[in-house]
């Protein structure tokens, strides 16, 4: 390969990349409302077949009040219909765990646990806010649309990106916008992003995805000893 050829090849690759990028952008921009709805439907349909899901997560927080991005790693497990486990930090600094209507937010370092019973929170902002933790795993279209409104859908060759806002006014007041990205081919969740009212952003990028593998039920249960300080919202736990 001559230098000229190499240069052409490099140029072609650059222009080709740019061409595909432009095409992708244009294709994305050219999506009409029906197309967007179609993509949403496809995503939601694909999500229906999900039984379990696990992934490594890289969370990056761009906070307006902090000069540097804050990065942490962790892991996420999800099992239908409403079980998930989020943990961040190594060792685990923060852990969110949901099993049915029980939701726990744990700070192992501080031995502090907050317990929520989602069925007794009523139709309030707390319940809406907690509902965002499994925003990437919509159960069905009706409940999804009850919770979110699609603002925009954009696509490229690799990913589909859904910009949404919460339906709940109180949640929207804190989190005006959310974003979900899925792989165009597998329809698997690859990233989520939460945009706070002050412009701060929390981006979760998922890797090492495993779909419908068998998960231990222990993952979704807590085993807190007396050293934990538990605060409860709603009726107390049955002992």
């Amino acid at each position: 390969m001559t230098a000229q050829t190499k240069c052409l090849s490099t140029r072609f690759r650059r222009f080709g990349g740019l061409f595909f990028l432009i095409c992708g952008v244009l294709w994305g921009r050219m999506l009409n409302a029906a197309d967007k709805e179609q993509l949403v439907t496809e995503w939601l349909t694909a999500a229906k077949s999900l039984q379990t899901w696990e992934a490594q997560v890289l969370q990056t927080r761009h906070l307006k009040a902090f000069t540097q991005p804050l990065v942490s790693t962790g892991k996420v497990w999800f099992a239908t219909p409403n079980q998930f486990r989020w943990q961040l930090g190594e060792p685990v600094q923060s852990l969110a765990l949901r099993a049915g209507s029980e939701l726990w937010i744990l700070s192992p370092k501080l031995r502090r646990a907050e317990h929520y019973r989602l069925d007794s929170l009523g139709n309030g902002p707390a319940k809406d806010l907690m509902g965002l933790l499994d925003m990437g795993f919509p159960k069905d279209e009706a409940s999804f649309r009850k919770q979110f409104r699609i603002l925009d859908v954009s696509t490229n060759a690799m990913n589909w990106s859904f910009r949404m806002e919460p339906q709940s006014a109180s949640v929207k007041n804190m989190l005006p916008e959310l974003k979900v990205e899925i792989a165009a081919g597998t329809k698997q969740l690859i990233a989520t992003e939460l945009i706070l009212k002050d412009g701060s952003r929390l981006r979760n990028e998922f890797k090492e995805l495993r779909r419908n593998s068998e998960l231990s039920t222990d993952l979704f249960t807590t085993n807190l000893d007396a050293t934990w300080k538990i605060t409860t919202s709603g009726p107390p736990l049955k002992k």
Binding site: A65, L70, Q93, S94, D198
Partner: peptide
């Protein structure tokens, strides 16, 4: 506060830690 900002899963805690460290 920095730890909360980095790892907290509670949006309120995030907001509080940012402006009330």
């Amino acid at each position: 506060a920095v730890n909360d900002l980095t790892t907290s899963l509670d949006p309120k805690t995030l907001a509080m830690a940012a402006y009330d460290p």
